[in-house]
């Protein structure tokens, strides 16, 4: 299945892109998405356990991903 992965701020800079389209087997979880991204060139700067949101809500690593889900890897937030 195809999953959209969004990257922001320092993570987007590190990987050199703010949006990826990745292929994952059915039944994949947030954890699989994170590990896939961590394998990309430049991704060594990402923390081991970054915050992740699925379809705009914070999600746990064990959360199952459905086709078409939007998975965002969220750097430490700094609004205000």
């Amino acid at each position: 299945m195809t999953v959209t992965v969004l990257l922001f701020a320092s993570y987007a800079d590190a990987v050199g892109s703010n949006s990826l389209s990745i292929e994952l087997p059915t039944g994949a979880t947030v954890d699989d998405v994170v590990r896939h991204v961590q394998g990309l060139p430049g991704a060594a700067k990402l923390p081991k356990e970054p915050l992740v949101a699925v379809n705009e809500r914070y999600a746990k690593r064990s959360r199952a991903i459905a086709p078409g889900d939007e998975v965002a890897i969220i750097p430490p937030v700094a609004g205000g």
Partner: peptide, 19 residues
């Protein structure tokens, strides 16, 4: 400040920028 996904790129007088 803890939850809303917003980031800031600070721009310094010497021309450098940093998250």
């Amino acid at each position: 400040k803890q939850r809303v996904p917003i980031w800031k790129l600070e721009q310094y007088l010497d021309g450098t920028r940093e998250w």
